[in-house]
Structures are given as C-alpha cells and as structure tokens.
Design a protein around this nucleic acid. Structure first.
Lengths: 116, 116
DNA sequence: TAAACACTGAACCATATGGTTCAGTATAGC
DNA sequence: GCTATACTGAACCATATGGTTCAGTGTTTA
C-alpha cells in the first residue's frame, strides 16, 4: 500500500466509515463516557472498544483523559467542521451539475420556443 | 472481522477516506471523464483507477456507462446529502456541548456575582 | 484486415481493520 | 493488605485495501 501521508480528512472519514464509531460519537454527544460504558453499550470487549476510541482520537474527533483507573472519553474540540466543509463544497458541485442537466432537459422539452 | 452489513454511510465514508477518490469526485465535479483520463491525472495504472471508481460506484457517489471502448464516469444522482445530514446533526451536538462548557467556564470566571 | 487503444480480470503483495483472547498493571474499596 | 475493577498490550485471525503486473477482450481506425 505504501501510505506516504494520512491527512486529516483521510483519518476522519475513515473513522466515520464504521457504524460502531459513528455510534460512539452520537453517544458522546449526549455526555462523556468511559471505555467500559461504551464497550457495554456496543456489546464488545474493552480491548475492542479501546481500539475504536483510539481511531477516533487519532482522527481528532474524540479526546480522552485518565481519571484514576477510568478513562473518560469526550468529543474533541476540533469537531467536524473540516469534513462538513469538504462535503458542502462537493454538494454544491453535484447540484450544479444536475441543475445544468435539468436545464438542458427542460429546454429540449420546451418546444414552444425554438432553440438557435 | 465478520461484517454483517455495510449500510450506505459505511460505504460512502469509506469511499471518501482516500485522497485519490476525493480528488476523482472533485474532478468529476468539473465534468465527465474516462478511466484513462483519471488514471493519467492521478498517475496510476488503469487497473488501479478502475478499482477506485468501482469503490465510488458501489457507494453510489459515481455512475459510469460504457460508450464504445470508453467508460464514461460522472457524479451520481444521489450526491452527498445523507453524509452531509449526519455530519451536520453531529456538528450541532459538538457545538452544543462546547457552548455549555463555555457557559460553565464564564460563570466560573464571572466573579462579580456570587455562585450559590 | 491489422494494429492501436481502452478497458477488464486474475493473481499477487504488503499493510490495515475489526475483532478476539490472555496475561498483565494500576487504582479503589473493604 | 487483599480483592475487585478498569484498563492496557501483545499476539492472533480473517478479510479488506491500495496498489502492481500480465494476459486477455472488445472497438476504432488506418
């Protein structure tokens, strides 16, 4: 594979490409949680959940801190702004292209005025 | 791994988690292209690019059709609406949580009125 | 009809992913 | 101090990913 770099969007979209991790984000949106909390809710071993949290943390979507023997997980400050921005920019293009197509189609249908 | 299902968001976020594929989407936003066009622009073999296009197609982000010996690739009708919606919903929560934190912090700092 | 072109598919490779178990380590509570 | 709790790390497994090469297949075009 020979990965030379893993820019922010690579990491965050990859992090979002898993239903469990999206669930974790939704969950943390309702409040902090420990690894145990999350592991129980998503029916998974502690080790498995810790890996998911590590992926989210590496992507900057989640932050954690150790409090006694418990690791508390919370949403990261960075949020999803960059991801939202990229998607919005593309959405505009998607829609622009189909709007253009629609115009062409309606011109082809609009037989009351003659094209040149 | 034992993947039981691959819902739409899994496929599309996974598709977006690669810089080449995001580049292909941006490119197709400026017009249709053949596999050869894309392979050349992204310095890759035809076979490699075809795989990327297949991933985008499976995610519903791109559609292709064969015209003679050329495969023409274009943005898919579905667009990125579902992905944008999920991200926006989470962004609201991210921001709500930090807004709440900010309120707590500024209350702690606002020493002109006494807390109870 | 022969040659060039555009793609396609199979096989291969190295590494990543999503899980597990098992054996620790550090902290909390009786 | 002992025990239960909460996590951590290493090792393992099956499959997926991101590329490649090589050998076709179907289409143009001269």
């Amino acid at each position: 594979m020979v990965q030379y770099s893993a820019p922010a969007l690579d990491l965050s979209f990859a992090a979002l490409a898993d239903a469990t991790r999206r669930g974790v984000i939704e969950q943390l949106g309702r409040g902090e949680a420990s690894i145990s909390d999350l592991a129980e809710r998503f029916r998974m071993t502690l080790t498995g959940m810790k890996k998911h949290v590590a992926v989210l943390e590496r992507a900057g979507l989640v932050v954690t801190r150790k409090v006694g023997r418990v690791r508390r997980c919370a949403l990261g400050q960075r949020g999803l702004a960059a991801e939202a921005a990229w998607i919005e920019a593309q959405r505009v293009l998607f829609e622009a292209r189909f709007a253009a197509l629609d115009r062409v189609l309606s011109e082809m249908q609009g037989e009351d005025d003659n094209g040149h």
